[in-house]
Design a protein around this nucleic acid. Structure first.
Lengths: 222, 222
DNA sequence: TAGATTGTTAATCGATTAACAATC
DNA sequence: TAGATTGTTAATCGATTAACAATC
């Protein structure tokens, strides 16, 4: 029984480790030391070892880490050894874009249904799914063992829909709506606030513009 | 001349402050104390005051903060008082979805062009833009004072395109491609790695499932 | 003026980095 | 065995929270 809580800072780095290790694996690299990985990923070797050791040590002194084994283990930690059934709520541009993005499936995230409240969209085919009316959402979740919902509706409807989702027993919400959802603790929410991300970029551009110029070559880079 | 560097932890919270303050403003709330804001936003009042004080104090003892003033100031810090000209590179589902999302414009982020390397898309109309061939990208950036590029192409092409962008003198890249971009320091990169976000959600769902159940009502919530 | 609430300093907490003994 | 490199403890750094004097 795992009981020590892993910090979200560590969890947030796991997908990036996973990506680099996958690439190394594809390149046929068999083993790697924390120092080599550090050079590639631009994080300290110390942090890499600390991060991995949260889960009990995947390496071997004098040898390093076996790439494939480490890759598999991190995948397991992230829950990628299991499949997840998802529905998309909101068949607008973003919802359709995500539905069409096949890479999620490769990681075990399976889109099972897509819902909208706009009757003109009902029946529209998006990959192998047909857009269904929102009223059918609850029954569908229960009938198809859906454990995650992707919220790609405007913020106005998002809070109400999150409440409805909560009552279905869903376990996670991937929230693209620009609101804070208030759901029971048993439901995990992962927010993707695109406009927040864009604002951060705007800030950092200005920050650099306003920075003390000393030490930076600026200007004629065209 | 601002010289003290503000931590990215603080910057990351600014858009959320901005959102809540905007809502309060729309509700006609004139003034708010750090404690009231703390209650609404679920962060400590202490953190709120520390965050704001990084920029020199927007409040008044005994009164609190003027909502509209604070909203304006945070917007200014984030660079939302200026407009930004953007191009989208990659006219696939995601690129088109972002192009069609009008809320960015409200914050001064203006989409000026959209590019792709697929000839069958050339000339396709997306909002007020027509998809242009990639070859025209560099000239377009220079001719239209583009300062940000949105990268919504597969990872395979992303690194090369980032290099081309770097040579145009662009200032920021909003990167949706699932790779690390290596660009000069003067170019800010903001990554949106959707699959990383989804993996974090998967982890947290499993974490909760595996948690010691004591203290949590589980089970019969259907 | 008295009460409220900030701005700011000090204390705590957590995360990152450094160091090195254990061990393959 | 000797060299390499982890696992892990200790040191440092940074971020968050608490406390309170300043002041509106």
């Amino acid at each position: 029984m795992e009981n020590k809580e892993i910090s979200q800072a560590v969890i947030g780095r796991l997908p990036r480790y996973f990506r680099f290790l996958g690439e190394l694996k594809d390149e046929g690299v068999e083993r790697i030391s924390s120092q080599e990985l550090s050079d590639i990923m631009n994080v300290t070797a110390s942090q890499i070892r600390q991060d991995f050791n949260n889960f009990g040590g995947f390496g071997q002194q004098g040898y390093g880490y076996n790439v494939e084994y480490l890759y598999e283990e991190i995948g397991r930690i992230l829950g990628l050894d299991k499949t997840h059934n998802l529905i998309i709520i909101g068949a607008g541009n973003l919802g359709q874009a995500l539905a069409n993005y096949t890479n999620f499936e490769r990681r075990g995230f399976l889109f099972k249904g897509i819902f909208d409240c706009d009757p003109t969209l009902y029946g529209k085919k998006i990959r192998s799914m047909e857009v269904k009316p929102m009223e059918e959402m609850e029954d569908f979740v229960r009938a198809n063992e859906i454990d995650m919902a992707v919220l790609t509706i405007p913020k106005t409807g998002a809070v109400e829909v999150a409440g409805r989702l909560a009552r279905t027993g869903i376990r996670g919400i991937w929230n693209f709506a620009h609101v804070d959802l208030n759901v029971p603790e048993r439901i995990q929410v992962e927010n993707v606030h695109l406009s927040d991300s864009l604002m951060k970029l705007a800030y950092n551009i200005n920050r650099f513009e306003n920075m003390d110029l000393s030490g930076f070559e600026r200007g004629s880079y065209v």
